[in-house]
């Protein structure tokens, strides 16, 4: 008896071992190295321990540009994530309608933006909103604008474009999770609500939302995580401009490592760990807020 159990255990570990080893070598070891690197300064070929050790970590809070990138990222987070998730849940609700025709077609259409690569969609938005681009042509011909407007050359409109692009790209992605969540809710629950005389809004608010809660928490965490690490849109759509008004944290980290040839890897790693801590804190909060089991 014992030997069989032992054998099974050994086999289990045997199966786990290759993948675990790969994760340790390819993922955990570099993370550890990055922690050490974030405590060092100097030329990237010959890095020295910083004096004091936390030098890079205290430095970033005196860096006006980094603080601005944090501000920009949080602006995207606060405006874009709620709009996106509400839109996604409404779309999911619509597309979950049993009597809807061409359901598959509509679902595919909403999800399709997620199939485009990040760089290519950023470039497409860039040409759409260029001064001589399609949007300007349409708006001028409709008489809404008198002359072409430089969307990506003005601070506020450039930020708005990034948010619109993010909404376009990610709403469908989140909608799919909600759709999956909605499929798991028994139709009989809705029938019972109908018999009790609940209207559509009440059904949505008191049945759908509570039952979808695990899915909502998951999408909130994923969106926070994704937005804090936003990179492609900032680099490709606006290249952080005009005047660094749309630069994100990850983009600034890139500028400090390879982007502008300064190779400041210690400082860049420290900022990356700052994002890591931020993601952990924000995810922790949303998990605590969502979890009412106690």
């Amino acid at each position: 008896m014992k030997t069989i159990k032992r054998k099974q255990q050994l086999a289990g570990w045997g199966f786990l071992l290759p993948a675990s080893l790969l994760i340790v070598i390819m993922s955990f070891y570099p993370i550890l190295q990055a922690i050490f690197m974030s405590l060092k300064t100097g030329s990237s070929a010959n890095m020295q321990w910083a004096n004091p050790l936390t030098y890079n970590y205290t430095r970033m809070f005196k860096d006006a540009l980094f603080l601005r990138s944090v501000g920009n990222t949080f602006l995207y987070l606060i405006i874009q994530v709620p709009i996106m998730l509400i839109l996604a849940i409404l779309l999911a609700q619509l597309l979950n309608n049993k009597d809807l025709k061409f359901k598959g077609l509509f679902r595919t259409m909403v999800f399709l933006p997620c199939a485009t690569a990040l760089v290519s969609y950023a470039l497409i938005f860039k040409s759409l909103f260029a001064t001589q681009g399609l949007m300007n042509t349409i708006l001028v011909n409709l008489g809404i604008f008198e002359t072409n407007y430089n969307f990506l050359g003005n601070t506020n409109s450039a930020k708005a474009i990034i948010i619109i692009a993010l909404l376009w790209r990610w709403t469908g992605y989140n909608m799919v999770f909600y759709l999956a969540g909605l499929q798991n809710i028994e139709y009989s629950v809705y029938e019972a609500a109908k018999i009790d005389g609940a209207n559509a809004w009440k059904t949505f608010w008191f049945i759908t939302v509570p039952l979808l809660k695990p899915t909502i928490i998951m999408t909130v965490i994923m969106s926070i995580n994704g937005t804090l690490q936003l990179f492609d849109e900032s680099v490709n759509l606006t290249s952080g401009g005009p005047a660094n008004s749309t630069i994100t944290m990850s983009h600034y980290i890139w500028n400090n490592s390879l982007g502008q040839g300064v190779a400041n890897f210690g400082y860049a790693s420290a900022m990356a760990f700052f994002i890591f801590v931020l993601v952990a804190i924000l995810s922790g909060i949303s998990m605590k807020v969502g979890d009412k089991r106690d």
Binding site: N154, T155, G241, P242, A243, N244, Q260, G261, V262
Partner: peptide, 20 residues
């Protein structure tokens, strides 16, 4: 200077801000 490109982008940002 080794910091030619950081200087260039900072001055470019300043010009955009002055223009607005």
């Amino acid at each position: 200077s080794d910091y030619h490109y950081p200087a260039r982008s900072l001055v470019a940002a300043a010009i955009i801000n002055i223009n607005s």
